[in-house]
Design a protein around this nucleic acid. Structure first.
Lengths: 191, 191
DNA sequence: CAGATTCTTTACCCATAGGTCAAAAAGAGG
DNA sequence: CCTCTTTTTGACCTATGGGTAAAGAATCTG
């Protein structure tokens, strides 16, 4: 009962995600959020308590999305190498024109890790899950005989995650997408 | 002539570099800078014009340092692979206890690339020079016969740079330094 | 329709950001 | 020791940050 909300909280969190993604946490202001979500500042605080909580919700949702997308690709049946290549290429392929704001998790790690406990924990969890998905894939490839048995799945997974994270940062500074694809190939040559 | 400065501008830029490194650009305030540099806010503005200009100077200096350090290692005589390993390990080896604020260039790329023209240009230049140093090393190794002639130096250099950048981000979220060293080894396995 | 309850609106609040300015202080040159 | 120049100090300023509160609007229950 009571007056019904005039906006969809889920949609609002998505929109907030976009804003934080574009601008970062510190440089995003409540008024900006209110404007972009199309609601008053008061409603915003009533619904989400604080800028920080809204950010947390947006970040968590973002993490779920990305992890799920990665797992979806890597768990497909068949040979693993092409899957890894597809996954990395997709993560490396920043559309180049618009949406060059990198990855929200990476940006957040750079901006807040070590300073904001919650943000640190969330991005840390995201990275761990991605690494695990990569490690699982590598192990599967090893059992398949696709790659050499002597390789260290842990090390390789960490390396692949680093590559992806690094490329997301580098993509923000310019550079052609094609170069990134070559870097992906070089990384996969380690298998 | 005129009253002499009561502080060494070079030293002040170094100190400012530390502050921006720890805290990022946006979250560092003029009063904080003044306090850390041990000078009044007025002096700060008199000497450096604006927070942004001071940041630019600090960032440029930081870039010079890191690029020079990397080149110094990679240009040593002898086999290249151990040099690459040493260079990457050094860049990956965040002391873990203190100084876990990553790399100023990486942090800046994540925070400001695409929004701040000057910052973007500076970090972009730093990354380019690092990549070039890495590429030179890889080419040398290829000429030496240390690594396979079929490898793509451009792609490998881009990959190695990505690894380093990525690890600097990941290091901020925790994780043991040892894992990073294994990731470095995995990356070098691509050679 | 009354009341309870929840949302929205608008005005308001304090602290800080980033910076400026006038006046005082400390040297150099004559 | 007087002036000219540059630094420093400290007060001051405007805009905005992040957030709160009080009053009004919309819905459900009875």
């Amino acid at each position: 009962m009571g007056r019904p909300k005039q906006f969809e909280p889920d949609v609002a969190v998505d929109q907030a995600m976009q804003v934080f993604w574009r601008q970062g946490y510190a440089t995003t202001t409540p008024q900006e959020l209110a404007r972009e979500l199309g609601i008053g500042k008061g409603s915003l605080y009533n619904a989400f308590t604080s800028k920080h909580r809204l950010f947390e919700m947006a970040l968590r949702r973002y993490g779920e999305m990305r992890v799920a997308a990665l797992e979806e690709i890597l768990e497909r049946p068949g040979p693993v190498k092409p899957l890894l290549r597809a996954a990395l290429q997709r993560m490396a392929a920043v559309p180049d024109d618009a949406l060059r704001h990198g990855c929200l998790a990476v940006n957040t790690a750079a901006e807040l890790a070590g300073k904001d406990e919650i943000a640190t924990e969330v991005v840390s969890a995201v990275f761990s899950r991605m690494e695990r998905a990569l490690r699982n894939a590598v192990e599967r490839a090893r059992r398949n005989g696709e790659i050499d048995a002597s390789c260290d799945p842990d090390g390789v997974a960490g390396m692949l995650l680093s590559v992806v994270v690094g490329m997301n940062v580098l993509a923000k500074t310019g550079g052609e997408p094609q170069r990134r694809l070559r870097a992906v190939d070089a990384a996969l040559a380690a298998l």
